[in-house]
Amino acid sequence: MTRCRYCNRKLRSARSIALGYGPTCRAKALKEARARVIAQHRPTTVDKAELLIADGGIVPLRGNRVWRVVSTDGTATYKTHAAACTCPAGVRGRATCYHRVAAELMALAA
C-alpha cells in the first residue's frame, strides 16, 4: 500500500502512486515549494526568471535537470541547472542568476 507523502492517505491511481502524491496534495506541495524558491531569491531575479519562462526562453536538454536558456538580449544561449549556470553571472558565482531560478521553477512544474 502506498500513501501520499503530504497527507498520508492511501493512493489508488497509478499516476498518484508514481508521483507519491494525490492530485490535490501535489498542487499544495508544488505551491509551497514554489513559495520557498521565490522566498530564497531577490524579487527582481524571480521576475526575470518568470519572464524567461513566459517567453519560452528555457528548454529542457536532459529530462528536467539541465536546461538551455537564452540571454536577456537573445544573442547567446547557456546551459543551466538549479545548482549552476554557464552564463557570465553564473560562472562568477557571486549571486544566483535568473537562469538558475527559472530552472528551479521549471523543475518543480515537471
Rank of each mutant, 00 (worst) to 15 (best):
N64L: 12
L61G: 06
G93R: 07
G63F: 07
W67S: 03
P60K: 10
G63A: 08
A89L: 15
Y78S: 05
A95P: 05
T77D: 11
G63I: 11
A83L: 08
N64K: 10
T75W: 07
T77L: 06
K79A: 01
S71A: 09
C97N: 00
A95K: 15
T72V: 09
C87S: 04
R68F: 00
A76M: 08
H81I: 02
R68Q: 06
A83F: 03
T96L: 06
A84E: 06
V91E: 11
Y78T: 04
R92K: 15
C87N: 04
G74P: 10
A84S: 07
C97V: 01
A84H: 03
R65H: 11
V70D: 10
V66M: 10
K79W: 00
T96F: 06
T77V: 13
T75F: 08
V70R: 13
A89V: 13
T72H: 14
T80R: 02
A76K: 10
R68T: 00
G93Q: 07
C87D: 01
T77F: 13
P88D: 00
H81F: 01
C85P: 04
A83T: 05
R94G: 15
C85Q: 00
T80Y: 00
V91P: 08
W67Q: 04
C97M: 05
G63K: 12
V69C: 14
D73C: 11
V66Q: 13
L61H: 07
L61P: 06
N64Y: 13
H81V: 04
A82E: 14
G74H: 10
T72M: 10
V91S: 10
V91H: 09
T96D: 04
D73K: 12
G63Y: 09
T80S: 04
G93E: 04
H81S: 13
R92D: 10
D73V: 15
C85A: 03
A76D: 14
T86P: 01
G74K: 12
T80I: 03
N64W: 13
G93T: 05
A84C: 04
K79L: 03
V66T: 13
D73S: 15
T75V: 11
R65Q: 12
C85I: 02
T86G: 03
H81Y: 04
V70G: 11
G90K: 02
G74T: 09
T96P: 05
P60G: 10
V66I: 13
